[in-house]
């Protein structure tokens, strides 16, 4: 039996300009430095077994990124799956043990990651849990857009929510296709105007959105585009990912079984730039 750990982490500040792939490589290096016994794929070019959730677009921030890390072996199972004996000396040297120190992992991993990537919480996954890519059904976002006053924006949001369909012309791989984005908008509210930005001349508003990831993800940029060509998205932060099952929405870390199996870092949230 193998152990899988699910981490929740933030990506805030300058590091938001790196890509999803870049973040994966940051994690690989940090995990190697941590000494955590990560499992490796078999075959021609083995890779560490990490699975990331729904990709965060380059430029967006997040306080709700998730990563599943598959560990090489479970405590109390001295034999590796391939029958090879594990080296006890290596086990003794191992700087962590699953039972004791999972709670300490966020604090140990954050300093090994670039500034702005902070590990917020961790939990042990039960068996047979779907991968993040399959399981996550929607994401919540906090957005800031520039262009129109809050009242005007609120009217447009209402119109969109009232409409039965909202067609958007998308271009992907050089092909144009019309798609209805209305079903993907689970929630959309104007939170208010932002007026504490020095030197600001154009109206700036904050929005909350919950966008479905299935059957097809809606990008925040597409949503803003649909709200009006005169709007510029200036900040986007993913605040939550949701797994909905039988009408109940929960956090991906809630899949980690008993509550005491997941551990939250107390004060890691907030803007790190």
């Amino acid at each position: 039996m193998t152990t899988t750990l699910r981490f929740r982490y933030a990506k805030l500040g300058k590091v938001r300009f790196t890509s999803h792939r870049d973040v994966a490589r940051m994690w690989e290096r940090a995990l190697r430095r941590s000494g955590l016994p990560v499992a490796w794929s078999k075959g021609f070019s083995p890779r560490p077994l990490l699975s990331f959730g729904y990709a965060l677009p380059t430029g967006c921030e997040s306080v709700a990124e998730y990563l599943d890390v598959h560990l090489a072996e479970e405590e109390g199972t001295p034999d590796r799956p391939d029958g090879e004996q594990s080296e006890t000396s290596a086990d003794e040297q191992r700087p962590w043990s699953p039972a004791g120190c999972v709670a300490a992992l966020p604090g140990r991993l954050s300093p090994l990651l670039p500034q702005g990537v902070d590990v917020l919480a961790v939990g042990k996954l039960g068996d047979g849990v779907d991968s993040l890519q399959q399981a996550v059904t929607s994401c919540s976002w906090e957005l800031e857009v520039l262009g129109v006053p809050a009242e005007e924006l609120a009217t447009r949001v209402e119109d969109l929510l009232d409409a039965r369909s909202a067609v958007l012309r998308r271009e992907r791989n050089g092909l144009q296709a019309d798609g209805d984005l209305r079903p993907s908008v689970r929630a959309l509210t104007v939170l208010g105007a932002v007026d504490d930005v020095p030197g600001q001349k154009v109206a700036r508003c904050r929005l909350h959105a919950e966008l479905a990831t299935q059957p097809r993800g809606l990008r925040v940029a597409e949503l803003v585009q649909r709200l009006g060509a005169d709007l510029t998205l200036v900040r986007a932060c993913r605040t939550q990912q949701w797994i909905e099952r039988d009408g109940i929405r929960c956090d991906p870390l809630a899949m980690t079984g008993r509550a005491e199996d997941s551990f939250h870092a107390p004060h890691a949230e907030g803007r790190a730039s």
């Binding site: 300009f17 890509s19 430029g59 670039p114 500034q115």
Partner: peptide
Amino acid sequence: EPLLDGVSTPGRYVGGELG
């Protein structure tokens, strides 16, 4: 910072490397 949303590979311009 505001320019970086419109350029390719914005990570080139932020620094922040280990070391």
